[in-house]
Design a protein around this nucleic acid. Structure first.
Lengths: 330, 330
DNA sequence: TCACAAATAACAAACGATTGCGACAATTTT
DNA sequence: AAAATTGTCGCAATCGTTTGTTATTTGTGA
């Protein structure tokens, strides 16, 4: 079946294309009776405007692009879910691509976005190497970019992220309150700015407010690494009595080690993490965590995007605040 | 900055638009020297063809649509990740929408897909009410639809899914092997065809090959429900010695109950589930499961889509086989 | 030198929708 | 009754690309 077009409707009604077009959008120039006829036929022929023709004309695609390192990720998929919801409510559709942590994919994806003339892009940097040139190119094309979660240092971009420093500090506060003596703090991929922020904030806070607590700092880029680290430290004579996990991945690895070694939580060891809550609540007792909500972040990002699209430039860095959720592991 | 178009290139080179267009795609009509000049300028002016104009001309959008009940789902997001990867490798981009289990969203989403003239749609039914009219409409428009996971009964569609009956039977086999005496089998949303298939296959198998084993069947649409069910059955005088969980959600609920009641796995109770493996491996001991890979299914779905797009109609139902993964819970 | 064929590039018509402007009637105003 | 206003609608250009057809140049053989 051939698609119904304005042309087809016009022919059948013995009207001009422009009249049909105007009738369909309730233009005052068109008489009520004509409008009725046009609408009736459009309905019965199941007319649906061709989005491509419209965008070619109007230069406005009503499509937003999203780049995440990986879709299969508890944080990002809740972010995406939120953005998708907001988008649909506002008449936008989403085009989602994953960089798989590879800069070359990131470039490819951005190219696809440019070719499809998306109205805006939500981007999460995939690597430490901030090749911001491409993003500047997007700005040249007047395609707004809203960075989320892992954002560039450069101040020329709109950014939304969790209050990373606050998260780390909240965790540190709880650790101090627990009267910990020896802490193992495991952070994520060292190259990422988000890791650096959290780590330095955590370190500074512990140093300033609890210099007597002995802290061991480590980085783990995967579950496996975290598991190995935990096992190593648990084997030492001076075992840690509290462990801090910066990400879900790390928490999973740490818990694998703890379960395998049959260390009791929270009596033998306290556990605290930064998470959206899904993983911490799978364990028993539930792991206490500082909540970072991908959902909240998604909503905020969308608001920023809309502001960017409509009102021109709004170059700011906004953060979503965190809150502590008591499990039973501290 | 205004976007570079063929027109602009043509003006600067004192050539016609058609010549520039042909030069860019290495058409034999154009001389090598002209091609070189055109390519050089296109490069330096960062020319990128307007996807909308192309699609308007060629009626081919190179965009595929995906509808899932929810993006935040361990199974679907691995499916999406796989499809996305295959798509990018084949020059397609993905438009992803979620129905949030609401039929009205499903309709809205399909409308968006039609308006954007996607080249094909991957769909997972969001409800028991199979309102297939919309999908027939897609077929009328010659937009191929590949159903995945939760598929319609109708044979006029292309479908890929897990070998649901096999999954259930494999689990049943393991339960019999374990010498279970009393089994609690919890299935998912009763209205879904996928649930019905798994349940009836499981029931029939248990009935035929182990009629002496006492089985209790139940349905749980959420984690909470599963948790409540497990607690209820654990409180009975005749406690189940084995529990089967059809989904990750159910497993999560069941494990909450088991952990809270401090029931020992696998000595006091055996646990087996159907999953992609992520959740089962978080527990200790690992939960044994029959593996259903969203990744595999995604790859298969993409192959089917490509066949549909290129070779016309291929109306078949393909299934991805499952395998049993030994944890330590049986 | 002329005719004839390649080789090269321009013309023009689509694809489907939007929109400023002008055309023509019917109606109102003076 | 002539002029101005209003209500309806059509014409035509435009967005950026593709592609069938035609026009122009260049080179070849007789």
């Amino acid at each position: 079946m051939t698609n119904t077009t304005l042309k087809l409707l016009a022919q059948q009604l013995q009207l001009s294309i422009s009249t049909v077009s105007r009738a369909l959008k309730d233009h005052p120039d068109i008489s009520a009776s004509t409008k009725a006829k046009v609408n009736a036929l459009a309905q019965s022929l199941d007319y649906e405007p061709n989005a491509y023709a419209i965008q070619l004309r109007t230069q406005n695609s009503k499509i937003l692009g999203v780049i995440v390192p990986a879709i299969s990720n508890l944080f990002y998929d809740s972010f995406i879910a939120a953005v998708e919801e907001e988008s649909r409510n506002n008449g936008y559709a989403l085009m989602i691509l994953q960089s798989s942590h590879k800069p070359e994919n990131e470039l490819d994806n951005l190219k696809i976005f440019r070719q499809n003339r998306v109205s805006g892009v939500f981007a999460c940097l995939s690597s430490s190497a901030e090749n911001l040139e491409v993003y500047k190119k997007m700005n040249d094309r007047e395609i707004p970019v809203v960075f989320f979660d892992i954002v560039p240092k450069d101040n020329h971009f709109t950014k939304v992220r969790m209050a990373d420093e606050r998260c780390a500090i909240m965790a540190a506060e709880k650790i101090i309150k627990r009267n910990a003596k020896k802490v193992l703090a495991i952070f994520g991929d060292e190259a990422l700015s988000i890791t650096q922020k959290r780590k330095s904030a955590f370190q500074k806070f512990m140093h300033d407010f609890a210099p007597k607590i002995h802290c061991s700092y480590a980085n783990a880029a995967s579950s496996k690494e975290a598991e190995a680290l935990m096992k190593k430290y648990a084997g030492k004579t001076q075992k840690p009595d509290t462990v801090f996990c910066m990400t879900d991945e790390i928490l999973i690895g740490v818990m694998k080690a703890i379960q395998e070694l049959e260390i009791k939580v929270p009596t033998e060891i306290g556990v605290i993490s930064i998470s959206n809550g899904f993983i911490p609540n799978l364990y028993y007792p539930h792991i206490s965590y500082v909540e970072t909500s991908g959902h909240e972040l998604g909503k905020l990002a969308f608001i920023q995007m809309l502001a960017n699209i409509k009102g021109g430039k709004t170059l700011t860095e906004l953060t979503v605040d965190a809150k502590y959720v008591e499990g039973g592991s501290m």
